[in-house]
Amino acid sequence: MRRAMVRVQTTVNGQPAEFLCEPRQSLLECLRDILGLTGTKEGCNDGNCGACAVIMDGRLVNSCLVLGVEAEGRTILTIEGLARGSELHPIQRAFLEQGAVQCGFCTPGLILATKALLDRIADPSEAEIRRWLANHLCRCTGYDKVVRAVRQAAAELKEACR
């Protein structure tokens, strides 16, 4: 049986990307199963864990709640697109240096959430960080070291802007 497929043209991690998907497939599925970008994780598939977060046209979205066809003409950043060549992004480095990664399953979502936060507020308070991250579950860390990582990244990025 042939199912109706839709052609989608989009930009992923700075490169044009084109794929065929079923209308019912989520962006998360398209990234993972069609484009092979398995760095974006599926924790719940219903918008309640944040593991699948990506940045679409500058906004943080749960990719399990976006349809693949909605990516048409958009610009998408996934965890695979954050490092600069062979250098980790300062947010990635901060997560490692602060010990904010345990199992690492929530990490891609948390790192992209941090990027989206710091793009908006360069120097967030602890309360702002916690409120922003509250859409992302992390079962391993108790969030303490995650918050510290966000603060380190904020400080470094601010320094770099000077």
Partner: peptide
């Protein structure tokens, strides 16, 4: 810094559902 750190922050670490 842990040995698998870079893999875990770049999305390269292979979890069970990432097997293809």
């Amino acid at each position: 810094v842990r040995h698998d750190g870079a893999d875990k922050v770049t999305g390269r670490a292979k979890f069970g559902a990432d097997v293809r």
